[in-house]
Amino acid sequence: MRAYYFDNIPGDQRLPHDSSRPVSTDTLNAIGLLHWQIPLDGNEAKIDQVAAERGYKNRDTISVTKEGLGELYETKIKGFFEEHMHEDEEIRYILEGSGFFDVREHPTDAWIRIHVLEGDLLVLPAGIYHRFTLDTENKIKALRLFKDEPKWVPHNRSAATDSNSYRLDYLNSIGVGA
């Protein structure tokens, strides 16, 4: 995993958009992100350990490819790239391929781009504004973990999400309050 500030230059969202300004692990931790690098071979015990420690009870696998999604591919990619939050943590363990998670730094509101690769396990806290896109490989397969029943409900950024209780809890958890 590599994290840096997004350059905000218009163009293909799947390009790196690297501003050459790296983001430290301390900065990621300060906004509530967690990350592990777990090799794909023999990973199950470590994944199970993280799942047990964080209370994840369910899991499934998601594959995002042109071949797998067919005509829905471009629509799905555009939807994933809409700025949104979830009322649950978003947990992804990358099994194949790669992509970018962009998260909002608070209080600056700057985008931080996180390039995830095979073996990366990333946890985005509930209430953080973020978006996702593939990189130019155009494919990713990830294990998704859930605390309860699998669900993935995006709440696009708006005045309503700014006052959503999960958003407010997130802001309090990183020490900025509402």
Rank of each mutant, 00 (worst) to 15 (best):
F100S: 04
V64M: 13
A142V: 09
I62H: 06
D102P: 13
V153R: 11
R54G: 00
P107L: 07
D41P: 01
I94Y: 02
D88Q: 14
P10N: 12
A160I: 10
F101H: 07
D148A: 14
A160N: 12
K57E: 13
E71P: 03
K78G: 00
I47Y: 02
R167S: 04
I31Q: 10
L145T: 06
L134W: 04
A45G: 09
R59W: 14
A51F: 07
I77Q: 02
P39S: 10
K76H: 08
T136D: 13
V176L: 15
E53T: 10
D48E: 13
L69C: 08
L171F: 11
S19A: 13
E83T: 14
R104C: 13
S19L: 08
G55S: 11
F6K: 05
D7H: 09
L122N: 02
E149P: 00
I174E: 02
G32D: 02
A142F: 06
R21Q: 15
N43A: 15
E90S: 11
G68S: 12
L145A: 07
E67T: 15
D48Q: 15
V153Q: 12
V116G: 05
E118M: 11
G177V: 11
R157W: 13
D148K: 14
F146R: 07
A142Y: 04
S63Y: 02
R59E: 15
I112C: 06
Q49T: 09
R14P: 00
P150F: 07
R54S: 08
N8M: 12
Y170P: 06
H130P: 10
P125F: 05
E149N: 08
I38G: 05
T161I: 05
T27P: 00
Y5A: 04
E90A: 11
N172Q: 13
T133E: 04
T25Q: 14
Y4T: 02
H17G: 06
I47G: 07
M1D: 01
S63P: 04
E90G: 08
Y4L: 04
L72I: 00
R104V: 10
H86Q: 10
R131W: 03
S63D: 13
K46Q: 15
L15K: 15
R92N: 01
R21Y: 09
H106S: 05
R14H: 06
H17Q: 06
I112T: 06
F132T: 01
G99I: 01
T108K: 14
N156C: 03
V64L: 15
F132V: 01
A51W: 05
I9S: 09
D109M: 10
E149S: 09
E118T: 12
T61D: 06
D41M: 05
A142G: 11
I77Y: 00
V123Q: 06
A110L: 09
W152F: 14
I140Y: 03
N43H: 11
F132R: 01
N8L: 12
R167D: 04
R21A: 13
F81H: 13
A30T: 03
E71R: 03
Q37M: 00
T61F: 13
R104T: 12
L145N: 04
I128G: 10
I62R: 09
Q49F: 03
L72P: 00
E96D: 15
I9D: 04
E89G: 00
E82W: 02
F80A: 03
W36D: 08
G55L: 07
E82Q: 15
Y129E: 07
Y129K: 11
R131Q: 10
G32K: 02
V176E: 05
